[in-house]
Amino acid sequence: MQVKINGIETRYVLSNEGGGPWLTFVHQLGGDLSVWDQLAGYFRDEYTVLRYDLRGHGKTAVSSDPFSIADLSRDLAELLDALGAPTTHLVGMSMGGMIAQQFALDHPSRVDTLTVADTTAGTPPEGRAIWDQRAAAARNEGMAPLVPATLSRWLTPDFQAAHPEAVEQIRDVLTHTLPEGYAMACEALRDFDLRGKLGTIRCPTLAVGGRHDTGTLPAATQAIADAIQGAQFELLDAAHLAPIEQSHRFAALLETFLGKPV
C-alpha cells in the first residue's frame, strides 16, 4: 500500500492478523521491506507488523532534497500517525538501526522496546569519506558495480552458498535501488552521530551484532548497548545482515525480549 509521508509517496505493508501490539521493522541501506518477509511471518499472529520502504528505496519515491537520519525518523513518526499507531516495538537493521535510535530519542513515549542490529551510533570523522565515495560511485556508475562488495559484507560465504534464492532477492533489491536514493542515504549516514545522547534512552533495548560483520564491527553495536542503561547485547554467527542470516536465532531472541510468544 502507498501513503504520502512528508510529501513522499511511501510503500508499506501491514500484517495484523493477530491484532496485537505494533512491531515495526526498518530495513538497511540498499534494501527494502522484503528483507523482513520471513521475520514478519514469525510475528504477525501476535503483533501488528509494519514494514515500509525508506526514501529512495524499494517503491518509495526519491526525496527532492537532501535529508538526514532525523528526517527519516520524522518519516516514521508520520507513517505511524497515518496508520493510527500510538506506540510500537521498533526493530532496525544497519541504517534502519540508526533510524530506530534517532526515533527513540525523538519520540521516547512512542517506543515500547528498541532492537537494533549491525549498526552504530555515529560515523567517526575517519569514516565519513567512505560514504562520500559510495554516494559518488552510485551517482556516476549506477548500482551494479557496488553490488559484489556489498553482498560480501552483508552475508557470509556459507550463507550465500546455502541460500542462493534468498541471496538473489537481496541482490535484486540492491541492484534496483535508485542511485540517487542510495547516494542521498549515504550522505545522511555520513553525518549521523548520536554517540553523546544514547544515555538518555530509557526503553528496554536489545542490540545484536554479527560476529563476521566487517562493515559495522560488533564492537560498534555493543557500544550502543553499553551506553543505554540495562540494554542487552547478543552476538550472532553472521555477517552484516545478522537478523536475516540467522533468522531463527534472531526471532527467538526477539520473541524472548518482547516477552510474548510468537
Rank of each mutant, 00 (worst) to 15 (best):
R249D: 13
V173K: 00
A231R: 06
K197E: 11
Q222G: 00
L254V: 08
L178G: 02
P164R: 04
P179A: 01
A223L: 09
E168N: 05
A161E: 04
R211E: 11
E255K: 08
G199Y: 04
T214N: 00
I224W: 01
E234Q: 15
A251L: 08
P204N: 01
A231Y: 12
G210A: 11
A220I: 00
Q232K: 11
I228N: 00
L235N: 10
D226K: 15
Q246S: 11
T214W: 03
A166N: 06
T175G: 01
D191T: 15
Q229P: 03
F192P: 00
T177S: 06
Q229S: 14
A225P: 09
H176K: 13
V173Q: 00
D213E: 06
A219M: 05
L194E: 08
L198Y: 12
Q229V: 05
L189D: 01
F233V: 11
A252E: 14
E165Q: 13
R249I: 15
L178Q: 04
D172P: 01
A185Y: 03
A207W: 08
F192I: 01
P243K: 04
H176F: 12
H248D: 07
G196S: 09
H176E: 04
H248R: 03
I224F: 09
F192W: 08
F192T: 01
T200V: 14
A227D: 03
G181K: 01
Q229W: 02
P179M: 02
A223N: 09
L217S: 01
T205F: 06
L235I: 15
A223T: 11
A251F: 11
D226M: 06
L178R: 06
D193R: 12
P204Y: 11
P164G: 07
Q232A: 05
A207S: 13
L198K: 14
A162P: 00
D213Q: 05
P164W: 12
T256L: 10
D172F: 08
A231E: 06
C186K: 06
L198T: 13
T177H: 05
A225R: 10
V208W: 08
A225C: 10
C203P: 01
T175R: 13
D172M: 04
L198R: 13
E187A: 05
I244N: 04
F250L: 10
Q169M: 15
H163P: 08
H176C: 04
R171V: 08
L194P: 00
E245L: 09
H240K: 10
G230S: 08
Y182L: 00
L235V: 14
P164Q: 12
E165I: 14
D193H: 03
R190G: 06
L189W: 02
